[in-house]
Simulated scan of single mutants.
Amino acid sequence: MTPTLSARGLVKRYGHVTAIDGADFDLLPGEVLAVVGDNGAGKSSMIKALSGALVPDAGEIQVDGETVHFRTPIDARRYGIETVYQDLALSPAQDIASNMFLGREIRRRGVLGLVRKLDTAKMRAEAQRVLDELDIKIKSITQPVETLSGGQRQGVAVARAAAFGTKAVIMDEPTAALGVAESARVLALIDRIRQRGLPVVLISHNMPHVFDIADRIHVHRLGRRVALVSPKTTSMNEVVGLITGALEVDENGDVVESAVSRGLSA
């Protein structure tokens, strides 16, 4: 199966610091791929390279097997890759429809379009359609975003990504600041996006959430992928061991004690 989004040998250095050290990445069609790793592991830098926010020094990125060169996030968007960052990039004072079409506003046709008149009715109708399709409950499409709960704001940001993403949606810690009930709603939203056939990259430190929603788990350590495992055959403790370096994956794909751990216990 050709990955929807993939990378080989990505490298990014900042002086003497290597943030990405020959990293590989593979996102398959229709899956939720969780990316996990300790702070400073380089996973954020790799995701920034895949979303166009960072230009790697070396390596190759492909979309549907075609080599691409992202210089900005706009380049990634042109290929159908949308990213939901932790800060959500929403304008609190504007309404939901305006936020969903932020930077991609629909203009009226004819003379009014020439004077840059916005087609507010069309944007609101389209925004409502996407929210309904994803079963995101909002009282009114005309509500300012600042009146929404944290989970609802996350839903608006995700709906925007799902509305314009055709290849992949990347989500950076989408449940980090949410309570139990709102986190559950966000995970259900991710599942609905997967059901639409749009693959999702989920960056998360929350292991129960990862094991609840992910089809595969990409473990990142020291700037590169050290394991790609299934939550069906790998335990939560084993994934934590892979993150810390206490465990590793051998040539047969089995999770075993790492060489470093064996040396310390010898």
Rank of each mutant, 00 (worst) to 15 (best):
Thr142Gly: 06
Gln154Glu: 01
Ile136His: 05
Glu133Met: 06
Gly113Thr: 03
Gly113Pro: 02
Ile106Thr: 04
Leu131Asn: 05
Leu114Asn: 04
Gly155Val: 01
Arg160Val: 15
Leu112Val: 11
Gln128Asn: 15
Arg108Gln: 15
Asp119Arg: 11
Thr142Tyr: 07
Arg109Leu: 09
Arg104Leu: 06
Val156Cys: 15
Glu126Tyr: 03
Arg153Ser: 00
Val115Tyr: 10
Leu114His: 07
Val158Asp: 02
Ala121Glu: 15
Ala127Arg: 00
Ala157Thr: 10
Arg104His: 15
Gly110Arg: 10
Arg129Lys: 11
Thr147Phe: 11
Leu134Glu: 02
Ile106Pro: 02
Gln154Asn: 03
Arg109Glu: 13
Gln143Thr: 10
Leu131Ile: 07
Arg124Met: 10
Gly150Arg: 02
Ile136Pro: 03
Ser149Asn: 02
Arg108Trp: 12
Arg116Glu: 13
Leu134Gly: 02
Gly151Val: 01
Arg108Ala: 10
Glu146Leu: 08
Val130Ala: 04
Gly150Ala: 09
Asp135Ile: 06
Arg116Met: 12
Asp119Thr: 09
Glu105Trp: 09
Arg108Cys: 14
Val145Ser: 05
Gln128His: 11
Leu112Asn: 14
Arg116Pro: 07
Gly103Asn: 14
Gly151Glu: 00
Arg108Val: 15
Ile138Lys: 05
Ser140Glu: 04
Thr120Ala: 12
Leu118Ser: 12
Arg104Phe: 06
Lys139Gln: 09
Val156Gly: 03
Arg109Trp: 09
Lys137Arg: 09
Ile138Trp: 05
Ala127Lys: 00
Gly155Thr: 00
Ala159Leu: 15
Gly155Cys: 02
Thr142Ile: 07
Leu114Gly: 05
Arg160His: 12
Arg153Gln: 09
Ser149Ile: 00
Leu118Ile: 13
Ser149Lys: 06
Glu146Thr: 05
Val156Tyr: 04
Gln154Ser: 01
Arg153Glu: 04
Ile138Gln: 07
Ala159Thr: 15
Ile106Asn: 00
Arg124Glu: 11
Leu131Arg: 08
Gln143Ala: 08
Gln154Leu: 00
Ala159Gln: 12
Ala125Val: 10
Ala157Gly: 08
Arg160Phe: 11
Glu146Arg: 12
Leu131Pro: 02
Arg107Ala: 10
Met123Thr: 03
Arg108Asp: 14
Met123Leu: 04
Ala127Gly: 04
Asp135Val: 12
Ile138Asn: 06
Asp119Asn: 13
Lys137Trp: 01
Lys139Thr: 08
Glu146Cys: 06
Gln152Asn: 04
Pro144Gly: 04
Ala159Pro: 11
Glu105Tyr: 05
Ala121Leu: 14
Ala127Val: 07
Gly155Lys: 01
Ile141Glu: 02
Asp132Tyr: 09
Ala157Tyr: 12
Arg153Thr: 01
Arg104Pro: 13
Ala159Met: 14
Gln128Gly: 10
Gln154Gly: 01
Ala121Thr: 14
Met123Trp: 00
Asp119Gly: 06
Arg107His: 08
Ala125Cys: 09
Thr147Lys: 10
Arg104Ala: 11
Gln143Phe: 12
Ala127Trp: 01
Ser140Gln: 08
Ala121Ser: 15
Ala125Tyr: 09
Ile106Leu: 08
Arg129Gly: 08
Met123Asn: 03
Arg160Leu: 14
Gly151Pro: 02
Gly151Gln: 00
Arg116Ala: 14
Ser149Thr: 09
Ile138Pro: 02
Gly113Tyr: 05
Asp135Ser: 11
Gly103Glu: 15
Asp135Gly: 06
